[in-house]
């Protein structure tokens, strides 16, 4: 018996569906298609919050506020979380806001260290003066609570083994009193811990960047004002990327390739500690840094392909079921007669 068209649709094998998904994700990414996206209020709120810290620091030079940045994600979600990290760190370094960084689990440490130093290098940030990597904050709830008074006794040393009491930045910033914002970039439920321990107990303001699947969990806290904005999935990262790109063009005001090439050219690099990053940019590294500035927007083109593909599949699947049911109902009625 000849198969009906809807039977063919409903019997498409999984390997073909997977192959289709692979193609719609990989092709736009390899073709380096960039996609501009509209900017939502929740992303703008987070951007504005960091801008307000910058403005506060401008007016109050002796009581500047810092940002505590938590790398709350592991390797599984780097495609979604990395672009958020890059653009938020760029924003912080561009505005020269003092930065403290920690990670709650061992597998996150390596990710945190590489990303932090990579972006710090692009803005000539000095370790210990402009930023500090505190290292492992495990168990994180104890560290969150102790930041209410002083986190230094729990750390003893930073990630690189430097005594926390000898680091200039940490003589001023060691509790929520001097933190304008906590930024948690995550793929886990870590923002809820921040909410319970930092926000509820110490009134600390928090912003979150999270994967799209977790975002729905956190929307109630954004609308209640407990989170100062949120970057929801790759789209949130793309929005922030656009906003920071505009800011970077305004502040640096020259081609990024030229800016990075000239960054360490005419300065005495012997004064810079090479433990944290090599103070020079090669041609390949510059290209990677430029590509990284549009990483989320390139990812959005793959996401566009994937979403449209899933919608088409759902549509075809439902049409197939509808006509198959119609046909089987017709057959049942005919048989009954």
């Amino acid at each position: 018996m000849k198969k009906k068209w809807y039977d063919v649709i409903l019997q498409i094998g999984k390997p073909y569906i997977y192959l289709g998904m692979f193609i719609v994700v990989v092709v736009p990414f390899l073709a380096k298609c960039e996609m501009q996206t509209y900017e939502t209020d929740i992303s703008k709120t987070m951007y504005e919050k960091i801008e307000s810290i910058y403005k506060y620091n401008q007016k109050n030079a002796d009581s500047e506020m810092a940002i505590l940045f938590a790398f709350d994600y592991g390797p599984s979600t780097t495609p979604e979380n990395d672009p958020m990290v890059y653009s938020v760190l760029r924003h912080i370094f561009l505005r020269e806001i003092p930065l403290l960084v920690w990670a709650p689990y061992v597998p996150y440490l390596d990710i945190a260290e590489t990303r932090l130093n990579r972006i710090a290098k692009e803005y000539k940030a000095i370790y210990g003066k402009d930023y500090v990597f505190l290292g492992l904050a495990y168990p994180v709830d104890a560290y969150m609570i102790s930041t209410g008074s002083d986190f230094r006794p729990l750390f003893n040393t930073d990630y690189y083994g430097n005594d926390v009491y000898s680091i200039p930045l940490l003589s001023k910033y060691y509790s929520y009193d001097n933190l304008g914002l906590v930024v948690s970039i995550t793929s886990t439920s870590m923002p809820l811990f921040w909410l319970q321990y930092a926000n509820a107990l110490f009134d600390q303001e928090i912003s979150v960047g999270t994967t799209a699947v977790s975002a729905a969990d956190f929307y109630p806290f954004v609308s209640s004002g407990q989170f100062q904005g949120m970057l929801a999935g790759l789209k949130g990262a793309a929005e922030y990327e656009q906003m920071v790109e505009r800011l970077e063009n305004k502040i640096i005001n020259k081609d990024i390739k030229v800016y990075l090439s000239d960054l360490y050219r005419d300065i005495d690099t012997s004064q810079i500690n090479k433990k944290y990053f090599e103070p020079k940019f090669g041609a390949e590294e510059i290209q990677v840094a430029i590509n990284r500035r549009s990483q989320a927007r390139r990812g959005m083109s793959s996401q566009f392909g994937a979403h449209i593909y899933v919608i088409i599949l759902i549509l075809f699947g439902n049409l197939g079921y509808y006509f198959k049911n119609k046909e089987s109902n017709k057959t049942t009625v005919t048989k009954a007669r």
């Binding site: 498409i12 999984k14 569906i17 997977y18 289709g20 998904m21 994700v25 592991g74 390797p75 599984s76 979600t77 780097t78 495609p79 597998p107 390596d110 994937a306 593909y309 899933v310 599949l313 759902i314 075809f316 699947g317 439902n318 079921y321 509808y322």
Partner: peptide, 29 residues
């Protein structure tokens, strides 16, 4: 870099394929 990161990323990226297949077969009106 070459064992843990790719393994972890692979497991999570499989989600896209499962969701596609599930959407096609189970997302019925």
């Amino acid at each position: 870099d070459y064992v843990y990161v790719p393994l972890d990323a692979t497991i999570f990226s499989l989600l896209a394929f499962y969701i596609t297949s599930a959407a096609f077969r189970a997302f019925k009106a």
